[in-house]
Design a protein around this nucleic acid. Structure first.
Lengths: 371, 371
DNA sequence: ATGAAAGCGCTAACAA
DNA sequence: TTGTTAGCGCTTTCAT
């Protein structure tokens, strides 16, 4: 066995499997076995090797390992933007599940704009998104090559992101949009139950024509689905929603405040009920009401969405539809790992339920605060 | 040249540098050069190669690349807990800076408990933390081997985490604690200015003996430093702080509410000023005041800390000391990348300033809201 | 300017 | 049970 050439890197050379093999007086194969398939090695040899491993402080080189096994135990997760409470919860759930199963998480923010060609949200026919244009070899923004799988969240039509992900020969799970492609699992928030519950909750106190849905961006899938369910629930109650009962804007306090302002001018903010697209919008409406001395919930009932920390911290506390973001993150990772283990299994769709949490902003008898 | 063995992985085999070389009718070395040192190759050859790269959709194998170069362009970041607005801001700043400089981020939550041996926060003598005990080869919780550098945030004494990081032959930058170790850069939040400013702001309206500091955990470095500066500022104003003017608990609304409750019982909540250890604590105090019909800011002045989104969204809006978390994250990444490029340069300490943002909770004339 | 060849550190047949 | 050997896909001398 020729002696290893000593090419020190960065000052100190880390011990390689060779060093361990020499120290333990065995072959590298045996060392490898001790680390990966201990049952193939006699207890005595294994012990010898382990001692050498500890003594030298040997850590397998993950690049070499990855080169051989094509596995890194790293999962990529691409979010539209890691801003705010919302995504941080998702990331938290994802990270917890990942570490539980011995994986690591590589985060990637998807900063690019949505592309010209919109992606149809529902039941996309397989192959419809097949690579068409010969893409330029631009440096990809996710370290795709290093990850064993990829979870991508698509909240708005974004063909480019999707295509890029699909061209990879990588297990992919998609969050927030249903893709009917074999082998692609989806994790969805089922906005239905929560939205229905919230709308009915408001209907219990107010006539259907006094109810408003104030959503986020019109392109946002969740806003779309929440708006639809809102309309359906009204219809089920015998009310056909007017166009002005649905509004779309942004997921921000400002937009909620603005929207409330326009109703205020028309003297129409009193005596109505509002289902907001998220908690920030709801808060904007709430603040506008407070500034106009309109009593919440007596004169104006408000229900937010997402049930972020904000909802339970403001006064009056905000009724809100709880969206289990941490669970979404965890489910994504869990599903991804399962698919890696079993690449050919049929695509699954996980649907996580939403649920109304009633607080003061829609019911003066609701328990205050949140603690 | 013997033909490559075709061992398809996961269905499809990705093109290797060999495939490109064959397609372009050059050697693999040339392909490599085109990708890494284009100036070493004639324009015509380069063009040929590029065409083949695009046509085959070739992406270099990052494991093989890492094995050779010992670089992955991935940076690890270990946070105590990725909960809440606070860390999500940090992560956001870090991710933005990382992608700006062509790196990716691997997140790792440090879930382990603080160890028995506490880590002295300031001016630790070099070598004091040298590896002493022969650690068990437990599976490390960060994919250390895959990252080019590591940013770790240490908010409380935690020798184990530190030692583990130091044993790696990895560039390390430490957040939130000063480590006097050669080659280790530190990113610090300079609590001084903001705390001083906030305390003086309160002193302008109230006598020093009516001021209280309600901190987070006693072990938390930031809470410690904020408390100290609070005391110093009072001293500079000629007031010697009583013990009961400093309180320590947790970084939560509940703790703030609780603390205010005890003062309330003693009928001592009116007419005082409170500097809270973070915004949640401040909010707890605020809510207690509201529940007790104590007017803020007229009868009770409150200043929070961190200036999270919460501060500008509650009513009355919360004065708060702004902590530039996104900048902290960005600085950590930036410093880390600089050190990777220049491993031997002297250790630097980056200090990011804090600054008081006055809102309604401490000054009734302050502009409302935040938008 | 280009190619041949030697590994980087590891795992996995295949032998023994 | 263990060792030998052949690569994984890439970069990088060293020749040419």
């Amino acid at each position: 066995m020729p002696p290893r050439k000593d090419k020190p890197v960065n000052g100190k050379r880390l011990p390689s499997i060779q060093d361990v093999a020499i120290a333990a007086d065995v072959s590298t194969a045996t060392v490898s076995r001790v680390l990966n398939n201990p049952n193939l090695v006699s207890p005595e040899t294994a012990e010898k090797v382990r001692k050498a491993v500890v003594q030298l402080g040997y850590k397998p080189n993950l690049f070499a390992q990855g080169l051989m096994t094509r596995k890194s135990r790293v999962l990529g997760i691409a979010l539209p933007d890691i801003h705010g409470e919302f995504y941080s919860e998702l990331l938290r759930g994802a990270d917890a599940e990942a570490r539980r199963r011995g994986y690591h998480i590589l985060v990637g923010t998807e900063a690019r704009k949505a592309e010209a060609q919109p992606l149809t949200p529902h039941n996309l026919p397989p192959g419809a998104l097949a690579p068409g244009s010969p893409e330029l070899p631009e440096r990809s923004n996710l370290a795709f090559g290093l990850v064993d799988g990829l979870a991508i969240m698509i909240t708005e039509p974004n063909e480019l992101l999707w295509r890029e992900a699909r061209e990879l020969a990588l297990p992919v799970v998609v969050l927030d949009v249903e893709i009917a492609e074999p082998g692609v699992d989806c994790i969805m928030v089922d906005n239905g139950p929560g939205t229905k519950e919230a709308t009915e909750h408001l209907l219990a106190a107010l006539p259907g024509d006094k109810l408003y849905f104030v959503g986020g961006p019109r392109e946002n899938f969740d806003t779309q689905r929440r708006g639809e369910t809102f309309v359906e629930t009204l219809r089920d109650a015998g009310i056909r929603a007017r166009k002005d009962q649905l509004a779309f804007g942004r997921y921000s306090v400002e937009w909620g405040y603005l929207w409330a302002g326009t109703l205020l001018k028309a003297n129409a903010l009193r005596g109505i009920g509002v289902l907001a697209g998220n908690d920030e919008i709801a808060l904007g409406v709430l603040q506008a009401a407070q500034d106009a001395r309109i009593k919440v919930p007596e004169e104006l009932r408000i229900v937010g969405y997402d049930d972020t920390r904000l909802a339970s911290l403001v006064r009056p506390s905000l009724s809100s539809v709880r969206v289990p973001m941490a669970e979404v993150g965890a489910a994504a990772i869990s599903t991804l790992i399962d698919r890696i283990a079993e690449p050919e299994r049929p695509a699954t769709i996980v649907r996580l339920p939403t649920k109304l949490v009633v607080r003061e902003s829609s019911d003066k008898n609701a328990a205050s605060g949140g603690f």
